[in-house]
């Protein structure tokens, strides 16, 4: 009994340590955002200030980077979600033997270091876009190259998200719709896409966020433009300012908000499902009584 208690204590202590490792640095950084000294310091805490948030707001390069990051994120999502969706549907249609190769090709961007994706994107698209001076002037831009480079691996994330949901799809539903006279596109729009809707939402969110926080690919593909992350990298390289901590606080704030919304939505859904199940049980009971 006591050994069990010790075991439990040890597990608890380990979990505490683990999350201390995970959150500790962020917590310290969070404190420095509200402390007055120029060098981000958590201790001693001299005086409370919100100046660093104001500084952040007035940081021109960072705001420009933020704008670009949002544009890139939207662009990547616009490419990757349809591509991932199409790729997952083709995966289901493909013959068993070809499937392994197809899978390897589509998943390879996830196993390739981001720097290599960045480099290869720039080298290839520079040549493609340099076909005419006009296209070079129009398209050979950091933002566009970054979208293309990031879309390469974000599409693979999306593919995995869609595949995970598709494996649980009952193919008989497709057949039922066909049998009732639906055309193949109607089956896709009426049956498959509504079923995949939660996966589409996940793919959009995860795609946008992984684009937003990407550094390795972006730093090569962005050329002369900037994103929030490359501006940040420049700032960190040059030195340290609590304004960066302030940014982290904002990001953590947003993600906590997102996590809470997610949890609330999940709970609501659970309540709805429980209610439906109770109704089904009542119906089941009535049915048994009606026959008897």
């Amino acid at each position: 009994m006591t050994s069990k208690l010790i075991m439990k204590g040890m597990v608890g202590f380990y979990i505490f340590l683990f999350f201390f490792y995970l959150f500790g640095p962020l917590l310290v950084m969070g404190i420095t955002a509200f402390n007055t000294p120029n060098y981000p310091q958590a201790y001693p805490f001299e005086a409370f200030t919100l100046d660093w948030f104001v500084k952040l707001w007035n940081h021109r390069a960072m705001m420009e980077g933020l704008r670009n990051s949002v544009i890139i994120g939207l662009g990547v999502v616009a490419i990757s979600v349809p591509v991932g969706l199409a790729a997952s549907i083709i995966m289901n249609q493909i013959y068993h033997r070809a499937r392994g190769l197809y899978y390897l090709v589509t998943i390879s961007p996830l196993l390739t270091p981001g720097v290599i994706i960045g480099i290869s994107t720039v080298i290839f698209w520079k040549d493609v876009m340099s076909i005419t001076d006009v296209t070079k002037g129009l398209f050979y831009k950091g933002i566009i190259l970054t979208i293309l480079g990031q879309a390469s691996f974000v599409s693979a994330y999306c593919l995995l998200i869609f595949m995970a949901r598709l494996t649980r799809f009952d193919r008989a539903q497709e057949e039922a719709a066909l049998d009732l006279g639906a055309s193949y596109p109607q089956v896709f729009w009426h049956i498959l896409l509504p079923y995949l809707k939660p996966a589409v939402v996940s793919a959009v969110v995860i795609g946008f966020l992984s684009s937003f926080e990407n550094y390795n690919t972006t730093t090569f593909a962005i050329l002369a433009d900037k994103t929030l992350v490359t501006v940040l990298a420049g700032e960190v390289r040059q030195g340290t300012t609590p304004a960066l901590s302030a940014l982290a606080v904002i990001i953590i704030g947003f993600s906590l908000l997102g996590a809470i919304c997610y949890e609330v939505a999940k709970r609501r859904e659970q309540i709805r499902a429980d209610r439906a199940q109770r109704q089904a049980q009542i119906a089941e009971r009535n049915e048994v009584e009606a026959i008897a």
Binding site: V28, M29, Y215, V229, L232, S245, L247
Partner: peptide, 16 residues
């Protein structure tokens, strides 16, 4: 949740 904070800022926090 901590992983929505990007790589650079996480490195920054460790540097602090």
């Amino acid at each position: 949740v901590p992983y929505w904070v990007n790589e650079i800022l996480r490195a920054f926090s460790l540097r602090l």
